[in-house]
Amino acid sequence: MAASAPAAHPKTASRLRELVSNQTFVLFLVWIAMVVFFTAANHIFFSSDVAGNILADWGPLMLVATAETFVIISGGIDLSVGAITGLSGVVAAFAMQDMTTAGQGATLTLIVGLLVCIGVGLLVGLINSLLINYARLVPFIATLVTLGAGEGLSIVFTGGAPIGGGPPQAISLSVPWLGPFSTPVLVVVAITIVCWLYLHKAKFGRYTYAFGSNSFATRAAGISTKKQITKIYMLSGLLSGLAGMFFYLRLGSGAPTTGAGLELDAIAAVVIGGAALSGGVGRLSGTIMGALILTTVTSGLIIIGVAPNWKQVVVAVLIALAVSIQALRRGEGKAS
């Protein structure tokens, strides 16, 4: 029963081996390769301006991908993140339009808009968790319901058109000022760090992994899985709502189509980042790289003049490879 600890390796060699087997590091190398490739194809790619463009796409994707990371590690899936992004942006846009028309100041209006986005996100997240906990729907179906309802409501509310008329300062907030970083992007970076700490260092993350790894064991250990599900899906809603505000600041309006299909990009980023849809596995650092790779491909293809539809092909190849690496590793894990 007792197994001796593995024989000590020379420190540097084992560290190197760890790096190479680390999905995040591999993705980092892939990303570097992409940057080199795009720069070789068009030197203008290697500029702060393009980095700013990439980060402007990365910000909202990272928010929903972070949400999806928690959900997927818990063994669930949240298809409603994109719909929440669109709906919260639209509802906030109406609120900000009203306040601006009524002559309210920009700062107060934007704060209210932010709170509305957070509120809409939390509300839909709560509905998701109620559907899962009490209506006993599996997460796929529960969030498919809210995806449909959310997208539908966005179109009904807006009549299909973007809603502007908010504070004219909105777009200027999205202008990069710290190198390629704009204020919203810096906020996303800060949120990502906090989420990383809570996923990997705190009880909330521990229970998220435990639930995805073995929900029976988690319940048997006396942990309330209903509470944990509620927290996870409300966090997912909250982050998606923040993505809605991010898009509002970027476009100066809330569009009902914003966020359509964003859930697929988020899931792609998480899966490329090394998480398993079966739950219990994944790192937020992998998701960070996954999201960065996706958005780098988007801008890169535009800069080198390739039809952006090729992005889907690149993403498909990356997903297939990321998943097969996982399968290879699992095989090794069993063998050793």
Binding site: R206, Y209, A210, G212, S213, F216, A217, A220, G280, V281
Partner: peptide, 13 residues
Amino acid sequence: ETLYQESGLAPQL
């Protein structure tokens, strides 16, 4: 304390 037949452990932890 109970040790269940179905594993009571979370394998990834």
